[in-house]
Simulated scan of single mutants.
Amino acid sequence: MDARALRWYFDFVSPFAYLQWPRIRALRQARAVTLVPILFAAVLDARGQKGPAEIPGKREFTYRHVLWQARRAGVPLRFPPAHPFNPLPALRLAIAAGCGEAAVDAVFDWIWAQGHAADDPAALRPLAERLGLDEQAPASAPVKAALRANTEAALAAGVFGVPTLALGPHLFWGNDAHDFALAVLDDPGLLDEPEMRRLAALPVGAARRP
């Protein structure tokens, strides 16, 4: 992978991806950032993990924390009718629309700013029409194949969660890691500092039994 390449792996199901999206848009004003929609559920399955919304207690905390962060950042936020939801229709819609900034922005706005459902093609029909898409376009074989390829590429790159901003081979997971990523962009030698390198090879002292 090109050490200078920037890729943003995201899934519309993630409110943290929505919170990071304005910062990614700002970054794209100065740097080329490839937008890569992926299926978060497939990543969780591959890594043997649960999502925050699948853990009682953590689910409620996460939603409140997201709302607090949005208010602090001045980002409009209204949760969709149910969460987690099936994001496949929204992901395929964005890919069918070319996955440019305008299309991604429209989908995020539909789900997280306006609070609309996005878990089936019928719910997304008004948005698809606004984007000028044929009703069958998101369900086409090439679109489905593109989403699978994106997700496989994310797994091959080591992605374990969304959103993830990749700076070449280096992964920065979560909206709260955005400033860390910018610091490394400004000073690539940051990750080569002795303590950073030591942490990359830190031994495991104890492990839980499976």
Rank of each mutant, 00 (worst) to 15 (best):
L6D: 01
Y9A: 02
D11M: 07
F12P: 00
P15E: 01
A17D: 02
P22E: 07
R25Q: 15
R28F: 12
V33Y: 04
L35R: 01
L35E: 00
I38R: 02
L39N: 03
F40S: 00
A41I: 10
A41G: 13
V43C: 05
A46G: 11
R47E: 15
G51E: 07
P56I: 06
K58C: 01
R59C: 04
H83S: 12
P84E: 03
P84Q: 06
P84A: 07
N86M: 11
L88C: 10
L93D: 03
G100T: 10
A103K: 05
V104A: 05
D105V: 12
D105K: 05
V107G: 00
W110N: 03
Q114M: 10
A123Y: 09
A128N: 06
R130Q: 14
L131P: 08
P138V: 13
K144H: 11
L147G: 02
A153Q: 02
A153L: 04
A157Y: 00
V159M: 00
G161N: 02
T164A: 04
L171I: 04
F172Y: 08
G174T: 02
D179V: 07
A181T: 01
L182F: 06
L182D: 03
A183D: 09
L185K: 04
L190T: 09
L191D: 00
L191Q: 07
P203H: 14
P203S: 13
V204L: 15
A206R: 14
